[in-house]
Amino acid sequence: MRKIFVNEPVLDGNERKYLNECIDTNWISFEGPFVKKFEQGMAELTNRKYAVAVSNGSVALDTAVLALKIGEGDEVIMPTFTIISCAAPLVRVGAKPVLVDSDPYTWNMKVEDIESNITSKTKAIMVVHIYGLPVDMDPVLELAKKYNLYIIEDAAEMHGQTYKGRPCGSFGDISTFSFYPNKHITCGEGGMVLTNYEVLAERCASIRNLFFSSKKRYIHEELGYNFRMTNLQAAIGLAQLEKLDRTVAKKRHIGALYNKLLKDIGGLQIPVEKTDYADNIYWVYGVVLDDDLPIDADEFIKRLGEEGIGCRGFFWGMHEQPVFKEMNLFEEERYPVAENLARRGFYIPSGVNLNDDDQEYVVEKIKLILNQL
């Protein structure tokens, strides 16, 4: 059977060369030179002064929350439609995630719902750019200024994307990236925290490295974590960063071809191609089943899987997560757009290793299933 994976990374740049350099020099740990080079490259990409490499995108968010000293009783406004890595750091420190629903077209957080959720306890807004289009940032920046709030910007899916010409990852007081295998830049696992504030950068670096004292190594004034990135990870990440423009171009080609092949097919909502502030970068190519189709996303994914096509469902809202229900969080809260996206949305193969024939095969099988329905 033909097999098309939901995502495959492409390692055809300097990845092997840089890894061999790590091995030849014995620099495989955090203190190797590629960590600094990767940090510098990501800072340049996002027009940031400081970048702090960490072991994955989830702990990048932990680091951001800890660096801003968000804690017990604080409130942070965030989308319900996102990965649990965004809410978990808040819950761990005793802060309260205050959720907003999604825009039904861009799938990003509904910006117009933010202000009504601001209280005297609100300390930050966590912006999460979803799937290919950035959040409309100007209104968020205005609210943060008006109410003196921090912005945590999760740009995990936005490598190479811009908002009104400015790079995603440049908007938050602290911004974060992930380098998981399905990202535009990957090093297997890895993350980055970025800021323009020296004091925050220094605090992030200390959190990452067990809060070793600058005066005497094994003296610790706070409890930190081992969130360090290895030189091996950074070597791969730097090689991936070097070819980011090519990756983004390929992703947009994939998106454009899917748009062409799917535009006249009934039963599916396809991604918004562009807004007045950004062109879609198609980190993944998501579709949402119309309400009148008699199956949900899980069943559609199963049927495509029987044809050798790998797919993945959309995020499940934070307010419906069993772990948070056990904590009595988000009781009686409903977010209908996010709930619909979770049940009827999924993304089809859209990794950079995909070719046009693969896409045509995927669409052929989608049509077949829709015709059967």
Rank of each mutant, 00 (worst) to 15 (best):
E142F: 08
W316V: 12
V59P: 06
A64Y: 00
I236P: 14
I118M: 10
E273Q: 15
M1Q: 12
I84Q: 11
I265S: 07
H319P: 10
D24P: 07
I185T: 05
L329R: 07
S58V: 08
I270C: 02
K96G: 00
E189C: 11
N7D: 14
V35C: 05
S55G: 07
S102G: 04
N340A: 06
F5H: 15
Y105G: 00
M229T: 10
L241A: 06
E332L: 10
V54I: 02
K274R: 14
V248D: 08
P104A: 07
F211C: 12
N353M: 13
G13I: 02
L238Q: 06
A67S: 09
N182K: 08
G266I: 05
F324W: 14
T162E: 11
I4D: 00
R203C: 04
N226P: 06
R48Q: 13
G224L: 03
I219H: 11
K96W: 07
D279L: 10
E222A: 15
E222Y: 14
F38M: 13
D136E: 15
E222M: 11
V352P: 08
Y147D: 02
R228D: 09
M318C: 09
G305W: 05
E21H: 13
A88F: 13
M109V: 01
A155Q: 06
G73L: 00
I70T: 03
D245M: 07
S102A: 15
V135D: 04
S102I: 02
M229K: 09
E307P: 03
T63S: 10
G286Y: 09
T82I: 13
E320F: 08
W316M: 11
L304M: 13
I23N: 07
N226R: 09
G266T: 12
K69T: 08
L223I: 14
R2C: 04
A338M: 04
D279Q: 12
I152A: 00
A235R: 06
A342T: 05
K110L: 13
A278I: 09
T82Q: 13
P181G: 02
I83L: 13
I281W: 06
R208V: 03
I83K: 15
P271V: 00
S29H: 11
M327P: 00
D113T: 08
L289E: 09
Y18P: 02
C22A: 09
L19T: 06
I152T: 01
K260T: 12
A297G: 05
V10E: 11
G351N: 02
A342Q: 12
K274A: 11
L373I: 13
F81I: 04
L293C: 02
F38S: 12
D173R: 07
N26G: 08
R2Q: 14
A124D: 05
E31W: 12
I23T: 09
E189S: 14
I270F: 01
P336T: 04
E360P: 00
Y150F: 11
E31H: 13
L68N: 01
A88Y: 14
A43H: 09
H129S: 02
K250F: 03
G172I: 02
E333S: 09
Q40P: 05
A51V: 01
F38P: 01
G310R: 03
